[in-house]
Design a protein around this nucleic acid. Structure first.
Lengths: 166, 166
DNA sequence: TACGATTAATTAGCCGGCTAATTAACTGCG
DNA sequence: CGCAGTTAATTAGCCGGCTAATTAATCGTA
């Protein structure tokens, strides 16, 4: 690939363009809920497991700690979460959802469902499955943390089968 | 899709995660060239067509004008581009590459080639083709401007065939 | 010709990301 | 016990995005 035109026809380039458009679409729907794109990721983790520490949130989101600091400050300002110092470690704090934060779960889930439908519109069930499978491969290539977590899960499988086998 | 867990298993969610990782990968390589991710998109357009106006750049990049204003100020600060007022329209200016800006073409193209290889690693040629095809579909769904440009190209084809037919 | 409407670009200010440097608390080891 | 080293979080400051509001120039039309 030596020409500029070739870059524009590459898959990586198409992916970059899709990314921006996808983010804009998510942002558009989340704006109706008063959220900025990215903030819903924090809430998603908390809906799954309330009371996470700041660092744990950063780890799960695959984001740097300063990003979490700023996002939490804003989410706290919107009364969506509360931070309480962890009694067992005065350096840390734990993040808890407020009632308002919990109440956004349904709307945000519906918002993502809408994005899902829009994103995959016009694709057959087979194409959707294939796309998801390939996207998972790409994610493993692009996101080393995700790859490691996949490998852990995989070695766990091997371990279970190994116990049956040996 | 009513549960949080279902969101995390959705294609749209996986796409969002891939996006962030992809952008980080591109950024990592571009940093070696002293560029920030996004700036190479501006240069890409200028390598293809030097002397674009600010608004044209925004249009081609699918980005809002203020974003272009700030990026150009920084690129100008790095001596990669120069802005000259358009003599035919005192409101506009035209953006021209400097020698330094032109010299980055090869390195950036190689950088994107490296990202391409990393992104698609471990995928068969058939999988790569399929992924690109589906990604183009997703792009049309997610990026309405892209969809419109595709439709224009398509209707152009129809027109040509129409002239032969009628 | 002169005035209103449109268009090009900028500014201000917000947000999610990042890195580098800092502060504060915990841990481990002599 | 005390101090060095590590870890958790914050701050400061940068960048690419966005919207809303502003300025400046062109165009259309009465």
């Amino acid at each position: 690939m030596r020409e500029v035109g070739a870059v524009k026809e590459s898959t990586a380039f198409a992916l970059a363009k899709v990314c921006r458009a996808h983010r804009a679409n998510v942002g558009e729907l989340l704006a109706e809920l008063g959220l900025h794109v990215g903030q819903e990721m924090v809430l998603l983790e908390l809906w799954e497991r309330d009371g996470l520490r700041g660092g744990e949130l950063a780890g799960r989101l695959g984001v740097e700690p300063p990003t979490v600091t700023k996002m939490l400050r804003r989410l706290e300002g919107c009364n969506l979460v509360e931070r309480h110092r962890d009694p067992s470690d005065a350096r840390s704090f734990r993040v808890y959802l407020t009632g308002k934060g919990r109440s956004l779960e349904g709307p945000v889930v519906r918002c993502w469902a809408a994005v899902e439908e829009r994103t995959l519109a016009g694709m057959t069930p087979g194409e959707r499955t294939t796309f998801y499978r390939l996207l998972t491969k790409v994610r493993a290539n692009a996101d080393l943390d995700f790859k490691r977590s996949q490998e852990r899960a995989h070695s766990g499988d091997l371990f279970k089968r190994g116990r049956d086998a040996f």
